[in-house]
Amino acid sequence: LRLFDPAVAQRLKRTPDGLVCAVAQQRGTGEVLMVAWMDDEALHRTLTTRRATYYSRSRQQLWVKGETSGHTQYVHEVRLDCDGDTLLLTVDQQGAACHTGDRTCFDATVLLADA
Rank of each mutant, 00 (worst) to 15 (best):
R2M: 09
D5W: 13
D5K: 12
P6G: 04
Q10P: 15
T15D: 09
T15S: 15
L19H: 10
L19S: 07
C21A: 14
A22E: 04
Q26E: 12
R27H: 04
G28E: 15
G28A: 13
T29I: 06
T29E: 05
T29R: 11
T29D: 08
L33C: 05
V35R: 01
M38C: 05
L43H: 10
L43V: 00
T48D: 14
R51E: 11
R51A: 11
Y54H: 11
Y54C: 01
Y55K: 01
R57W: 00
S58C: 01
R59Q: 03
Q60W: 01
Q61R: 08
G70R: 08
H71E: 13
H71T: 08
E77Y: 01
E77I: 03
R79A: 11
R79V: 04
L80G: 02
L80A: 02
D85L: 02
D85H: 02
D85E: 05
L87W: 07
L87T: 01
L89V: 13
L89E: 13
L89M: 13
L89G: 12
T90K: 03
Q93G: 06
A96W: 04
A97M: 01
A97K: 04
H99I: 03
T100A: 11
G101S: 06
D102Q: 13
D102C: 12
T104V: 03
C105S: 12
D107E: 12
T109N: 07
T109Q: 06
V110A: 03
V110P: 03
L111N: 13
L111G: 13
A113E: 15
A113W: 08
D114N: 09
